[in-house]
Design a binder for these strands. Structure first.
Lengths: 229, 229
DNA sequence: CACCTATGTAACAGTTTCATGACACGCAGG
DNA sequence: CCTGCGTGTCATGAAACTGTTACATAGGTG
């Protein structure tokens, strides 16, 4: 399966709960990773860098709070939004007070609908295009709903990979993306592809973006990767 | 089958009022969701993406105005029409002045007929086919009442599945529909059918649409699905 | 300037995805 | 029972896409 859809890591020790969560998230069209313990969760987070983590507060060995701290203190994972599940509603405030850095909190027992809504809310911040938003940069417009890309009003023809690549780049204009990270996000963590492939696709994307005129909006960061704008 | 009737979200804290509204809306053939508070309303809106929201201005915690703002600032829900109910008629102007982005305003006490009329008016803009109206795209006309499809005045022969598929595609021209979503909406969520079947029916639909001449209005989005227009 | 490395780019071959026609099955009407 | 229609699946060929490689260029360093 391709990497278009957001990837969510669920860390929860109770198998039943984990299954329910995963089932519902998959029904929403997300890719789901499951972790049974804090250790495993951390590992999966670092390994896969998912788009979001749903994290149970109560975990057998390492507490969810500790997992949260570690995720948030690691450069490669600190940007991942975390939604914490706390056992009782009165704990929500307590947990929130701990300044763990989690981005949202949901009290058990939670309504699945509510949790799904919050998941979507978080992703909307970080992966707008994946949820159908429109990205603009100067005269370049990427519409996540129609998958059309136009420049100065002219529709451009992009292959699937070029589209995903542009979408990724435009989500954070100006940000520098190392080749490795682009591979992770655009190709998927499990793809074993040469990093030079990124160059080739950036080249193709550049050609497509400038085919109808206009300057090249992609900067090359020598020795590192690329940036948009 | 899932002839998807329009779904309306009612956000109103007073149970009695909510019931009256729901009763009348259901009598009109709409599916109704009820929210008792601003919070719940927002969640329901984000989760279900209804076709319209009837929103009370005065809500206990989060005001209707705030709900409206949040709905309108959220990419996935911003397109949903909102009808605001304000307590007194002199407030209508005030609320309108606040530029909340609501699409219509009704003063309490309102006549049920009036509200129903306004609901229908809003839906006519966004869900024409479900109301039995007709969908137009260039020279293609789909009549929701007679279930007849014509192109350049010539009636086309479509099977039931092709009709539903076209109806779904035409309701949001330009929007990309992943195969999975088309299966959900056209075949029904519980249908167990191969995703490739979508291809075959799109092919049949294309053949029918171009049988009498004219260009193919369906775009193939490689690796994803299809879009109309 | 000479040299070395990183990047741009074109060409190519392999793979994936899609369009299409064939076919079998289930069902309703005759 | 036969017949016609609508549907889902499959096989096939065509077209699009992708990753790699090889070579040309540009950037940086001493």
């Amino acid at each position: 399966m391709k990497v278009v859809q957001p990837c969510i890591l669920v860390v929860e020790d109770e198998a039943a709960q984990r299954e329910v969560l995963s089932y519902n998230l998959e029904a929403e069209g997300y890719r789901v990773l499951q972790g049974e313990s804090g250790d495993e969760g951390l590992l999966l987070a670092r390994e896969n860098v998912p788009d979001l983590i749903v994290l149970d507060w109560m975990l057998p060995e390492m507490s969810g709070i500790e997992v949260c701290r570690q995720v948030k203190s690691d450069t490669t994972t600190k940007a991942i939004p975390i939604i914490m599940l706390s056992a009782r509603s009165e704990d929500v405030d307590k947990v929130r007070g701990l300044e763990t850095g989690a981005d949202d909190y949901v009290a058990k027992p939670y309504s699945v609908k509510e949790l799904m809504a919050r998941v979507k809310a978080q992703l909307r911040r970080t992966r707008p295009a994946a949820l159908g938003a429109q990205l603009d940069f100067e005269d370049i417009v990427l519409n996540g709903e129609t998958h059309k890309v136009t420049r100065a009003g002219v529709e451009l023809k992009l292959g699937p990979t070029e589209y995903r690549l542009l979408s990724q780049l435009m989500e954070k204009p100006g940000r520098v993306w190392p080749r490795e990270q682009l591979l992770d996000h655009v190709w998927g963590r499990d793809a074993f592809v040469d990093t030079r492939t990124v160059d080739v696709h950036v080249g193709r994307l550049r050609k497509a973006l400038t085919a109808e005129g206009g300057s090249d909006p992609i900067r090359t960061i020598r020795g590192t990767g690329y940036a948009f704008g």
